[in-house]
Computed example of a mutant assay.
Amino acid sequence: MKLKKPPLPIPILMMIGIVAISFSAIFIKWSAAPASIQGMYRLLFTSLLMLPFARTYSGAAFALRKKDWIMLVLSGTMLALHFLLWMGSLKYTSVASSTMIMALEPVFIMLGVYFLYKEKTAVSAILGLSIAIGGVVFIGWGDIGISADNLKGDLLSIGGTVAVAVHMLIGQKLVVRMPSYLYSLIVFLSAAGVFAIYNLIMGIAFFNYPANEWGIFLLLAVVPTVFGHILFNWLLQYVSATTVSMNILGEPVGASILAYLLLGEQLTALQWAGGLLVMFGLGVYLYAGRKKTIQLADAIQNAS
C-alpha cells in the first residue's frame, strides 16, 4: 500500500501538535470547574467549530456501516474516559508527574498493535522507546511522592492512559475507511454526549460558571484539541498509531516547561536531563520505525 504524503513534513506537523497539547495541563490547572465539565465543553466547542465544514463529508457519513458507528461511539467513550481520568488527575498531582505517566501510552499502543495487527517492533525502535520513557521517568521522579493525593492522581493518570490508547487503536482502524475530519467530529460529539450523561447522573451543574472559566473551556477546545488531537487524528492516515502516540512523550517536556513558566512549578536538573532524553529517544524511534508505517497500514487494510 502506498501512503499519501501530507502537505507539510510530518516532523513539523508533529511538533505543532506537541506544543499544542502541552498547553492542555496548564489550562486545566487554571480552571476550578469539575473535570467532566471541562471535558464536555472542550469537546462540544471543538465540535461546533468543526460543524460548518462538515457538509463536505455528509456522503461519507451516510456510507458508514452499523459496525462503524458502534466503533465510533466506543472510541468517543474511551476519549471521554481518558479526559475524565487524566484531567481529574491534575487536581491531585503535578503537571510533570501526570504527563509523565500519560507518556506511557506508546507501551499500551505497542502491545495493542502487536495483538490486533501483528505489528512487530524493531529492536532499535524499542531502544528509542525505552530511552524516551526513561527520560519521562526522570521528569516526574522528583514529584511522584507517596502521599494519598499524589497516589490517587497517579492512578487516575494511568487509567486515562489506557483509555486513550484504546481510543487511538480504534481510530487507526477507522481512518483508513473514512475521512479523519469526519472521524474526529463524530468521536468528539460522542464523547461530549458521554460527558453530558455523566454530569446529569452526578448532578453536576452545566452553566453556573464565571466568565473566565468559559474562556478556559474555549482555549481547551482551540489549542490542545484542534491543533493537538485533531491534528494527530489526521496524521493517522500517514503514520501508524504507535508513531503518533510516540509524540505524547514530547508533552511532559513542553508541559513541564510551561508549568515552570506559568504555574511556578520547579524543575530539577534531573527533570531537565529527562527532557533531553525524551527528545533523543523520540528521534531514535521515529528513525527506526519509519518503515513499519507501511507494514501496519497494509495489516489494518487487510483486517478491515
Rank of each mutant, 00 (worst) to 15 (best):
Y181W: 14
G275H: 03
P252E: 11
M110D: 02
T225K: 07
I26K: 00
S184V: 11
L169G: 08
Q301I: 15
Q172S: 12
L85S: 11
L8C: 01
R290S: 12
V194G: 05
M178P: 03
K4V: 08
N199T: 01
A205W: 03
E251L: 13
V278D: 02
V187F: 00
G203W: 03
A122G: 13
G140R: 02
A132P: 11
K291N: 14
G128F: 06
P179W: 07
R290N: 06
I230C: 15
K152G: 15
A35V: 08
S147Q: 02
M202C: 12
V278S: 03
D149F: 11
A288K: 02
G203V: 01
H167M: 09
A25M: 02
K120R: 13
I21M: 13
A20V: 05
L74E: 04
Y57M: 12
S97V: 12
L51K: 00
V19T: 12
G193L: 03
M100N: 03
Q301D: 13
I109H: 01
L267T: 10
I109A: 00
L151Y: 08
F138H: 04
T56N: 10
A205I: 01
G203E: 04
I248W: 10
V226W: 10
K4D: 15
G153H: 06
I18G: 03
I10H: 04
M202V: 15
S58N: 07
V162T: 02
P6G: 09
P106R: 00
L218S: 13
I26N: 01
W86N: 07
F45C: 06
L249V: 08
I26W: 01
A96H: 00
F62K: 12
L79Q: 07
Y198C: 04
A259R: 00
L49E: 03
I144R: 10
F108A: 07
R290V: 02
V278I: 08
K5G: 00
A273S: 13
M78L: 14
Y198I: 05
V136S: 12
G153F: 03
R42M: 09
Q266D: 09
L220T: 01
I16S: 05
M40R: 03
F83M: 08
S24V: 01
V107L: 14
P179T: 10
G135A: 15
V73Q: 07
A196T: 12
Q38F: 01
Y238E: 09
Q271A: 15
M15I: 12
G160P: 06
Y181H: 10
F27A: 14
G250W: 06
I12F: 14
A96L: 03
I197N: 01
F27R: 10
I158D: 05
F23A: 09
L263D: 01
Y57R: 07
H82G: 04
L85W: 07
F280W: 11
T99A: 07
G275A: 06
L286S: 13
L282A: 02
F195Q: 04
G228Y: 01
L111V: 11
G153E: 06
L8W: 15
S147H: 05
P52D: 08
A211E: 14
P9Q: 09
F217R: 05
I186M: 11
P7M: 04
A132V: 10
A259M: 08
